[in-house]
Design a protein around this nucleic acid. Structure first.
Lengths: 238, 238
DNA sequence: CCCCTAAAGGTCGTATTGACTTTAAGTCGC
DNA sequence: GCGACTTAAAGTCAATACGACCTTTAGGGG
């Protein structure tokens, strides 16, 4: 070993985020096989013959969680290549980040694995994930947090039409900090192409009816919405 | 094909940028073998047995260009996996972005390939690179441009100590737009931890002597320095 | 019909920015 | 030695963006 071309397997792992019950949640599966049998892991699987990594990610999304890739935001996160990351041998994995609006509880899928939503904060604070999936999850969270600042991905966490309050809760939950409702609305309503007013309103159980919006055409939030500062865990909370 | 686990080779490709002669330049090699023999390509090579992709990147950096990875900024760019990207078969590549200060003209290295600096603008406008390296180069340029906005990587293009004028030229060359010298200095000198004054000055052939700075400790530029707008090619030029 | 709540909208002082001007400190040509 | 020239450094000023905070609006519930 060391000199020749490495013999490697390539896998795809998915960091799937959604906001439900006022929390950022990640979809995890319980492993049915060794290694790490019984432990929680990111859903994923091997790259097949003639597909791209992105196609493999969409396929795994469906096979393992019955989620439709077309309804999610999907982007490549990073490739992890530590030779010791998988005890079975040389497995390099490319992680993808998938974001969606209030996704359904996954029916187990064709694979017999148990899939369930878990609060990201709990997983990062207490849980231990298989392989290096804890690191991957952390990287995914940081990517999502950063992209809230300068892109319009926050809207993919809301099903259309949505209110500004719902959108604000997305930011608060992912950044783990409270935001001033008034300044938040001023900021986002003035961002060109971010929100598309529908002219309709939604009356909830309490409070004044909120205007409903759909996603605007701009992929970037200009000027960006900067966090006050870094917050390494989702709101901490001892 | 299609059903089973893909049999893939993994390679590393390098997008190496430096600023020389008032231009952003990229290091390219002329391919000595088929496919694409004689054409320009990014330097790179196969992943070996027990190394990470990052270690492979550093190794290739040295073998192909005699550049020392420790003296460069190196970060993972993206993984490219189109099954048809390499006519020889299934080759997935992870691209790394390497940035350095006025790097030397590479001696060909142990590999017998001809390595040389080329202006990025020219390559993107006229040149055709092997494989999908044109796409990778474009992605690398966009990454570098974006990171100038909110990190302090611009300083790695300058050898220490450097003047604010030199730093400004880095921004101008990579973004392809002129910047107001006065506002530029105000912005960067007030960014906490970005520049470390040395107290020394450099007298050039013309003009008032410029204060010399070294890199500060802050990895991020806060608040960010936003480009006026997108500029898909490096200053265009007709 | 009053209270409570959240949405919507406004105020105000401060910080940041872009466009521009002024002053400083060197070299070069004569 | 001196003025022209060049770039660095510093300042001005109006427009904008932002954080903190307040007021008004429009529903539901008791």
């Amino acid at each position: 070993m060391g000199r020749g071309r490495a013999v490697v397997s390539l896998t795809v792992d998915l960091v799937i985020f959604t906001v439900r019950a006022e929390q950022l949640q990640v979809l995890l599966v319980e492993r049915g096989n060794e290694p790490f049998r019984g432990q929680l892991a990111l859903p994923g699987g091997y790259l097949r013959g003639a597909e791209t990594l992105e196609e493999a990610a969409v396929r795994e999304l469906w096979e393992e969680t019955q989620l439709d890739g077309a309804r999610l935001h999907l982007e490549q996160l990073r490739t992890y290549s530590d030779p010791r990351r998988d005890p079975r041998g040389r497995v390099v994995t490319t992680a993808y980040l998938a974001l969606g609006a209030d996704l359904p509880t996954p029916s187990a899928g064709t694979d017999a694995k148990e899939a369930s939503w878990m609060p990201v904060r709990d997983v990062l604070e207490e849980g231990f994930l298989a392989f290096d999936h804890g690191v991957i999850l952390r990287d995914g969270l940081e990517r999502a947090r950063a992209k809230l600042e300068y892109t319009s991905i926050a809207t993919v966490f809301c099903s259309e039409p949505f209110t500004i309050g719902e959108l604000r809760r997305v930011y608060e939950v992912i950044w783990g900090i409270p935001l001033d409702p008034s300044n938040f609305r001023r900021k986002l309503t003035r961002a060109e192409g971010f929100l598309e007013p529908t002219g309709k309103f939604r009356t909830s159980t309490v409070g004044r009816p909120a205007a409903l919006y759909s996603r605007g055409s701009a992929p970037l939030l200009m000027p960006p919405f900067l966090r006050a500062q870094e917050n390494s865990l989702p709101s901490a909370g001892t």
